[in-house]
């Protein structure tokens, strides 16, 4: 296009100019070789079976769905369900806890204080993930200081004193749920804050000027405008959370096990790359299914809201 328009010098520049897609090549190569290819190999391996006695080898001579059958029929199905439940609950808890924080950050805090609050939110990231999670073992252990304090009957426990012996949270699903919300909270707060921050004040003021009360402004102006940020936050938290296994390995014991740990287990302990791959693919499919359902819900909500508003306008 430039060539037809250009004079001599600009034509020369065009000739010298490298094609634009060159910029994308590094990340393209990166994604193809370190993401697409390995994932494709995992999918392929999931149709094979383990070669007995040779660690990690997969026999692909007679591809079948047997490994998936094992996932669906065995104990893995209930573990997958549990994992999804933990992940969905964890994501919802993150959203509920993050929304007020992000709202506060975006609209109620002055610029100076904002920097301070953001810095405070970053602080946990300066501590190694493993250590952060491990520290919960001290807090939650049955003979730890929290447990001892709660059992002490000190007036400060507000009558919540435990009468049935030490707290038994460590090595349960509850411990994993708690720590998971704690570990993934910042991943929710930041996108929500960015999304809310970009909602223009004029629009919120206009809503008020047109007679909407604060709740209505929030529900009909602020939140819909922040919608994409909320969706980004949900995905950012839900996807890695579903595959998390460090938290479960450190705090979950036998009861708080998650499917991610089972994938690692199949690869490293069982030396069965085929089963590990099948579980991993099942996890990916489950994640996509849940995301699909959430997307459908959002779409339905938007539709209903639009229809409801249309009716209102006609009535007035």
């Amino acid at each position: 296009m430039t060539a037809t328009l250009g004079t001599q010098p600009s034509q020369q520049r065009t000739w010298l100019r490298a094609p634009k897609f060159l910029l994308a090549i590094p990340s393209f190569v990166w994604y193809v070789f370190l993401f697409a290819v390995p994932v494709a190999l995992v999918v392929v391996n999931s149709f094979g079976r383990k070669v007995a006695g040779t660690p990690g080898k997969v026999d692909l001579s007679s591809p079948s769905l047997d490994r998936y059958h094992e996932v669906i029929s065995g104990s893995f199905r209930s573990l997958l369900k549990q994992t999804m439940f933990t992940s969905i609950l964890g994501t919802v808890l993150c959203l509920v806890i993050s929304l007020p924080v992000a709202y506060f950050l975006a609209f109620k805090v002055g610029p100076k204080a904002k920097t301070a609050v953001l810095a405070l939110l970053m602080v946990p990231f300066f501590v190694n993930f493993l250590l952060r999670t491990l520290a919960w073992r001290i807090v939650l252990q049955p003979q730890g200081f929290v447990s001892n304090f709660l059992q002490s009957g000190h007036w400060f426990t507000f009558g919540l004193a435990l009468r049935n012996g030490p707290i038994q949270i460590l090595d349960t699903r509850a411990a994993v749920q708690l720590a998971i919300v704690y570990n993934y909270l910042p991943l929710m707060i930041f996108p929500l804050w960015v999304a809310l921050d970009r909602v223009e004040l004029h629009l919120r003021e206009a809503s008020k000027d047109l007679g909407a009360n604060r709740l209505r402004t929030l529900l009909q102006v602020t939140l819909p405008l922040a919608g994409p940020g909320i969706v980004a936050g949900l995905i950012l938290v839900f996807v890695p959370l579903s595959g998390d296994y460090v938290t479960a390995a450190l705090l979950g014991g036998a009861k708080g096990n998650m499917i991610g740990a089972e994938v690692a287990n199949q690869y490293f302990k069982a030396q069965d790359a085929a089963s590990g791959s099948a579980i991993a693919v099942s996890l990916i499919i489950s994640i996509l299914l849940v995301l699909g359902v959430i997307a459908a819900c959002f779409w339905l909500m938007a539709r209903i809201r639009r229809r409801a508003r249309a009716v209102q306008l006609v009535q007035r």
Binding site: S75, F76, S78, L79, A254, K255, N257, M258, K269, A270
Partner: peptide
């Protein structure tokens, strides 16, 4: 190993 995996999955499921 299969037994072990199934026990683990069952304990968490």
């Amino acid at each position: 190993v299969k037994i072990y995996s199934n026990v683990k999955a069952k304990a968490g499921g």
